[in-house]
Computed example of a mutant assay.
Amino acid sequence: MSGGAAQRTRRLGLTGSIGAGKSTVAALLREAGLTVTDADALGREVTASPEVLTELARLWPEVVSTGPGRLPALDRAALAARVFGHPEQLAQLEALTHPRIRSATEAAWQAAQDRGESWVVHDIPLLFEKGLDRDMDAVWVVDAPLELRLKRLAERSGLTREQALAREAAQWPPADKRARADTVIVNDRTLADLRQQVTSALHQLGLG
């Protein structure tokens, strides 16, 4: 009897508003044995590569520190200040980094496909904003009340209320994300409650 074609590994898009706890959900998914690609982590790897650092230094010399006997290093705060709120500079940065991030994401998906995994999670903060939800077989949105998210951001990243609200404004409104989600995970209680929501949602995908 001949074997059938291997089943395609499906893609679960994971996104959420800033401070909602998407990274915690991603950690729970890894704990459950799923492969998770992290767009932010891949972006950090990309911007640390010599090729990209050289181009960043050409575009904005102040964001790359150099010196005698020192390897070039990215000043992430300076880069954020350069591109945040400046659409043209942000577009330049994305044109440089996004193709490389997509390539690394696809390589991770292909490896999971080769291993016969049924799902891969793509953790992408700007999933909807960049239209990447169209490539997903299912989408989870992690959400929490605004004031709770602002409190988390102040504690975790030292962001002022104004800084956090500015970043919030650069993303889709939470209500729009929730409306487009297949599953909404509300992270406003305990870790045990969050874990139970994730477990239930995995069962809906035929996992766990």
Rank of each mutant, 00 (worst) to 15 (best):
E129C: 07
R44A: 14
L56C: 05
T66H: 07
G131P: 04
P145S: 00
R115F: 09
P145D: 06
P61G: 05
E94P: 04
T105L: 07
P50M: 11
A164R: 02
Q110E: 15
R161F: 14
A41R: 05
L90R: 09
Q92H: 12
W172E: 06
L146P: 04
L148F: 10
G85S: 13
A112S: 09
T47H: 01
D133V: 00
A112T: 02
D123M: 05
D135F: 11
W109A: 04
W140Y: 10
A164M: 06
A170K: 13
E147V: 06
I124R: 01
L146R: 06
T97H: 03
L153I: 14
V64S: 01
H122L: 14
E129M: 08
A91W: 07
P145L: 10
A154T: 12
T66E: 05
R134C: 13
W172A: 03
P125G: 07
A48P: 07
G69K: 14
T105K: 05
D137M: 11
L79F: 03
L74H: 03
S49Q: 14
H98D: 11
A57W: 03
G67Q: 09
L42A: 12
T66W: 01
L42V: 11
E117Y: 10
R156I: 13
A77I: 02
V63C: 02
A104W: 07
A104I: 01
D143A: 11
T97L: 05
L79Y: 01
G131F: 13
E162F: 14
P145I: 04
L56E: 01
A164H: 01
S118Q: 15
E55S: 13
R152A: 04
W172Q: 04
E45H: 14
H86W: 11
E129H: 09
P87I: 07
Q110H: 12
E88K: 10
L90Y: 04
G116L: 07
A80T: 06
L150A: 00
R44E: 09
E117I: 03
D137W: 06
R82G: 03
V120E: 04
A81Y: 04
L146W: 10
T35C: 12
Q110M: 12
R115W: 09
E168P: 00
E147G: 00
T160W: 13
Q92S: 15
L146E: 15
E147T: 05
W172H: 04
H86C: 14
H122Q: 13
P174N: 12
H122M: 10
A48V: 04
V64M: 01
D137T: 10
R102G: 06
E168D: 12
E94T: 14
V121W: 02
S49K: 12
A73N: 05
E94A: 13
A111L: 11
R149M: 13
D137R: 06
D38M: 06
L53K: 10
P99W: 08
L153A: 10
L165E: 07
G116E: 08
A78P: 03
